[in-house]
């Protein structure tokens, strides 16, 4: 290779390496900031107390905790996963296994369109459809709004992973006389299982981290634990949003601590899946 080509090649590698580093740098910056400021806040109270007690009075020096918000987040995430995952799997299977039906193409386009919708509009929609008739904000309404956010993401991930299973495995399944359902559920999902789980986890992570869908649907107090699924519920994201906009330093500190808890939960789920599920090599 000529010198010129070699130099261009080297420069090219340097540039893309640099830009890649730039692309990934914000992640480290964000994680570090959250870790430092969050740890500062949590350390002042102790982890257990931070996770179980209620927030402090504004403007004082105490820090309290995020107990009710944490409980709410757990409830909302669980409920929305229950609603969203079966639908996502169903839609992904339909789109991948029966790709030529118009229904499939339409649903594929539609579920992607849901991704475009500002999450606050979903909150308005669920408010009109569920909160008003029920006369109360509730965990169910919040979970429904969250699942509307989650479904397109999980579906997209699932579609991608299910599609990337080479056709040869399907054909092998059919060749030995398996039904389409059998092939889809046992062969394809089996091979893509790491991707499927990852897709579900991505969706759960999305539900965990959303704020706007809960604004008019969840309605809970930061200071009281939720009592039922048809009653209002708080969430860590709502707490962070509320507290970040106050001028009170102690509340802002609680917000950072809450952010650290949220990120820790997210990372825990994420890394567990990445490490535990064995990938099937294709």
């Amino acid at each position: 290779m000529s010198l010129r080509r070699k130099l261009i090649d080297r420069a090219f590698v340097a540039v893309i390496a640099l830009l890649s580093a730039v692309g990934i740098a914000p992640l480290f910056y964000i994680l570090t900031t959250v870790a430092i400021r969050g740890a500062e806040a949590i350390a002042r109270v102790g982890l257990w107390r931070f996770l179980t007690s209620i927030p402090p009075a504004p403007g004082t020096h105490g820090l309290g905790g995020i107990g009710p918000a944490l409980a709410g987040t757990l409830i909302l995430t669980a409920l929305s996963t229950l609603i969203g995952v079966p639908i996502s799997i169903g839609v992904a299977l339909l789109v991948v296994e029966f790709p030529n039906l118009f229904v499939s193409r339409a649903v594929r386009a539609l579920s992607k369109t849901f991704m475009e919708i500002p999450t606050i509009l979903l909150s308005m929609l669920v408010y009109t459809l569920l909160v008003v008739p029920m006369h109360t904000p509730s965990a169910i309404a919040g979970a429904l709004a969250l699942s509307l956010v989650m479904i397109p993401y999980t579906t997209t991930y699932l579609e991608t992973y299910l599609e990337s299973v080479p056709p040869i495995y399907r054909e092998a399944g059919y060749a030995i006389g398996m039904t389409k359902a059998g092939v889809a559920l046992r062969v394809v999902m089996g091979i893509a299982r790491k991707g499927v789980l990852l897709g579900i986890v991505m969706g759960v992570a999305r539900a965990l981290g959303e704020t706007a869908p809960l604004l008019f649907t969840a309605g809970g107090s930061h200071y009281a634990y939720p009592t039922s699924l048809t009653g209002p519920v708080d969430s860590i994201t709502l707490l962070i949003f509320d507290f970040a906009m106050t001028p009170y330093t102690n509340l802002i500190q609680v917000a950072w601590g809450a952010a650290l808890v949220l990120v820790a939960m997210y990372l825990a789920i994420f890394l567990a899946i990445k490490l535990l599920v064995k990938e099937v090599r294709t």
Partner: peptide, 11 residues
């Protein structure tokens, strides 16, 4: 991709 959006906002 999955990091909670409110954390991006706070940061």
């Amino acid at each position: 991709a999955g990091l909670p959006t409110i954390v991006y906002g706070l940061w």
